Amino acid sequence: MNVVPEKLFCRICNRRTNHHLVTNEHGHEFKYVISHLDYDEVDIEFFEEYSIVQCRGCDTIAFLKKYGDEDMFHLIGPNYHSDREYFEEYTVYPEEPKKDTHEQLLQFNEKFEFDHLPDLISGIRNETINAYKHRMNLLCNTGIRMIIESICKVNGIDKKPKVRRGETVLDKDNNPVMVNLSLFEKIEELQKRNLIDEKQNNILNQIRDIGNETVHEIVRPKTRELLQYLNIIDFILYNIYELPNLNFAKKTSPK
């Protein structure tokens, strides 16, 4: 009898219990598997396995999906390529009810209406929020950093003249050679242009530091922290793009 390695939610026991794969009278498991090998072109190695399972406590039948891919691993040592421990994701149907209180506290509720966001920023923001809602924390954190980068880009804050020994470096046409600004320098320039204030500068740099830690140290950001960052970013976006367009002038009554 093939027992599922991970405890699954049972709707009758109302808790996570041990399950085993159901077999027919010939001992064959009810299983269907697809993987990257079933496609001509695919960017990532993966597999999806669907099977029928049974609770070992109350015999209730459920449907199980097991998924794994080449990016699903934990680092267990200093070597990024060899010190990997791979894992799979188990999803049982009917699904385990979410804890309402916890989920409600961590929901992203939009506090502002945006009518004047540049398309570049709006697109990245929407994808970042979608990543958060699906608890793809690494992608969400990367998206938040990209929002900051996109604010700078649409305001023409991305490059500076290259300087060597105090002199501006020129190309063969006698034009300044331009180099990319670091994100720190871009945030500083946002403040110089009065697009953000000093406190917002400090906050954006804190988000930048945490983003660097996520990328370079492979640290998964916490959901609660990401929610705070999203709310802060939205507040800054509203200040930059919506407040200047608000009009509270009183309408004059026709005589």
Rank of each mutant, 00 (worst) to 15 (best):
L246R: 14
L243I: 15
N205P: 01
N126M: 10
E217N: 12
F47Q: 09
C10E: 01
E110I: 04
S122W: 04
C140T: 14
R193V: 03
E48T: 07
F112Y: 15
G211H: 04
M1E: 08
T128D: 03
E103M: 10
N202Y: 06
F248Y: 14
I240T: 13
M72R: 07
V53D: 02
E242C: 06
L230F: 11
L204G: 05
D69Y: 04
Y241I: 05
F112H: 15
T142S: 13
T142F: 12
F248E: 06
K160I: 08
R164P: 00
P97G: 09
M178C: 01
G211Y: 01
I187L: 02
R193Q: 12
E96T: 06
E45P: 00
P94M: 03
R145G: 02
L64A: 05
K255A: 04
G211E: 04
R56D: 15
F184S: 08
E48V: 09
L117R: 01
D40W: 09
R84F: 02
E96S: 06
K160W: 01
E185S: 12
P221G: 07
I34T: 15
E49I: 07
E95R: 13
K222Y: 13
K172T: 05
E188P: 00
N2P: 08
E242N: 10
S122V: 00
K255G: 02
K159I: 03
E185G: 00
A131I: 02
V169N: 05
N141D: 10
E88Y: 11
D171Q: 01
I207D: 01
K31Q: 13
D197W: 10
K133R: 15
E89R: 08
K7P: 07
Y80A: 01
L204K: 11
L226T: 03
K31D: 05
Y238C: 06
E189H: 05
G27L: 10
F114E: 06
G211Q: 04
K65E: 11
Y238P: 02
V4P: 05
F112D: 08
Q206I: 07
Y50I: 05
P244A: 08
G166V: 02
Y50S: 02
L139M: 13
M136G: 07
Q206P: 00
R145H: 11
N245P: 02
P254F: 08
L120M: 10
E198W: 04
K66A: 05
M136I: 12
E41G: 03
D40K: 13
R84D: 00
F63A: 03
T252F: 09
N194H: 13
L226R: 04
